[in-house]
Amino acid sequence: MDVFMKGLSKAKEGVVAAAEKTKQGVAEAAGKTKEGVLYVGSKTKEGVVHGVATVAEKTKEQVTNVGGAVVTGVTAVAQKTVEGAGSIAAATGFVKKDQLGKNEEGAPQEGILEDMPVDPDNEAYEMPSEEGYQDYEPEA
């Protein structure tokens, strides 16, 4: 019985440690998101679009440190934060509304985080759909 109880105690310690790591990862992701939003706020009209992409990228980098179902929630929060940063930029006159959601080359930025393969159960990952990809044929 002692062996059984000791095993359960060790398992509990492992769960607590994993929860603490997840909590730490979420806190880091939130900190990076805040950094990115402050970065966007300090940019001029020309830099705002690039700044919004930076927020998304920093958040995406930190999301990889967070495991399990938390990833889905962090990704949703990050996307809403990026959308909010863009709205703030438009409201303050840093950028025109028609410039939001495009990178410096004018290509749409939507789907940055949505296409990231995420499995809350950590069982399997699927690649994003290939609808947006084109076949590449090298020139002879």
Rank of each mutant, 00 (worst) to 15 (best):
D2N: 14
D2I: 01
V3Q: 07
M5F: 06
K6P: 00
K6S: 06
K6Q: 04
G7M: 14
G7Q: 01
G7H: 14
L8V: 07
L8I: 10
S9L: 02
K10R: 06
K10F: 07
A11I: 15
A11G: 08
K12Y: 11
E13D: 10
E13W: 12
G14T: 14
G14I: 12
G14N: 05
V15G: 02
V15T: 02
V15K: 00
V15L: 11
V15E: 00
V16A: 06
A17E: 04
A17S: 11
A19Y: 15
A19N: 02
A19P: 00
E20K: 05
E20V: 04
E20G: 05
K21A: 06
K21L: 13
K21C: 02
T22Q: 01
T22W: 10
T22V: 04
K23R: 12
K23P: 00
V26L: 11
V26H: 00
V26G: 01
A27M: 08
A27D: 03
E28V: 10
A30F: 14
A30Q: 03
A30M: 13
A30H: 02
A30V: 04
A30T: 07
A30N: 01
G31P: 01
G31L: 05
T33L: 06
T33G: 04
T33H: 01
K34V: 14
K34H: 04
E35P: 01
G36C: 07
G36M: 14
G36Q: 09
V37P: 00
V37Y: 15
L38Y: 15
L38K: 11
L38T: 07
L38F: 11
L38D: 01
Y39G: 07
Y39R: 06
Y39H: 04
V40Q: 01
V40C: 06
G41Y: 08
S42P: 01
S42W: 10
K43E: 01
T44E: 00
T44M: 11
K45L: 07
K45P: 01
E46Y: 10
G47P: 01
G47Y: 03
G47V: 05
V48D: 00
V49M: 07
V49C: 09
V49R: 08
H50S: 12
G51D: 01
G51T: 08
V52R: 01
A53D: 10
A53S: 04
T54R: 15
V55P: 00
A56R: 14
A56V: 07
E57P: 02
E57N: 14
K58L: 03
K58S: 08
T59I: 02
T59H: 00
K60I: 13
K60Y: 07
K60G: 03
K60Q: 08
E61L: 11
E61H: 11
Q62F: 14
Q62V: 07
V63H: 01
V63L: 08
V63W: 14
T64N: 06
T64Y: 14
T64F: 13
T64H: 15
T64R: 05
T64V: 08
N65L: 07
V66E: 00
V66Y: 10
G67W: 15
G68H: 10
G68I: 13
A69D: 01
A69P: 02
A69V: 13
V70D: 01
V70G: 01
V70W: 09
V70S: 02
V71D: 01
V71T: 02
T72G: 14
G73W: 09
V74G: 02
V74W: 11
V74E: 00
T75R: 03
T75K: 15
T75M: 09
T75Y: 12
T75C: 08
A76K: 10
A76P: 02
V77H: 01
V77C: 10
A78W: 14
A78N: 01
Q79H: 13
Q79T: 11
K80N: 02
K80G: 04
T81Y: 12
T81L: 11
T81C: 07
V82T: 07
V82L: 06
E83F: 05
E83H: 14
E83W: 15
G84I: 15
G84D: 03
A85S: 07
S87H: 10
S87N: 06
I88G: 03
A89S: 07
A89G: 07
A90L: 10
A91M: 12
A91T: 06
A91R: 11
T92Y: 02
T92M: 02
G93S: 04
F94Y: 13
F94N: 13
V95T: 06
K96E: 06
K97S: 13
K97G: 12
K97E: 02
K97F: 09
D98C: 14
D98R: 15
Q99P: 01
L100M: 15
L100G: 10
K102S: 02
N103I: 09
N103A: 03
E105N: 12
E105M: 06
G106Y: 07
G106C: 08
A107Y: 01
A107M: 04
A107W: 07
P108C: 11
P108D: 01
E110F: 08
E110D: 04
E110R: 12
I112V: 11
I112Y: 10
L113V: 15
E114V: 12
E114G: 12
E114A: 05
D115K: 15
D115V: 09
D115G: 13
M116G: 04
P117V: 10
V118E: 12
V118A: 12
D119C: 10
D119M: 07
D121W: 11
D121I: 11
D121K: 10
N122E: 04
N122T: 07
E123P: 10
E123T: 08
A124G: 07
A124H: 04
Y125L: 08
Y125W: 14
Y125P: 04
Y125E: 05
E126D: 12
E126Q: 01
E126V: 11
E126N: 11
M127Y: 11
P128L: 14
P128I: 12
S129Q: 05
S129Y: 09
E130C: 08
E130Y: 08
E130G: 11
E130H: 08
E130L: 14
E131C: 10
E131T: 09
E131F: 10
G132L: 10
G132T: 11
Y133M: 09
Q134W: 07
Q134Y: 05
D135F: 10
D135T: 09
Y136F: 13
Y136T: 06
Y136K: 03
E137P: 08
E137V: 08
E139H: 11
E139P: 06
E139S: 15
E139T: 02
E139V: 14
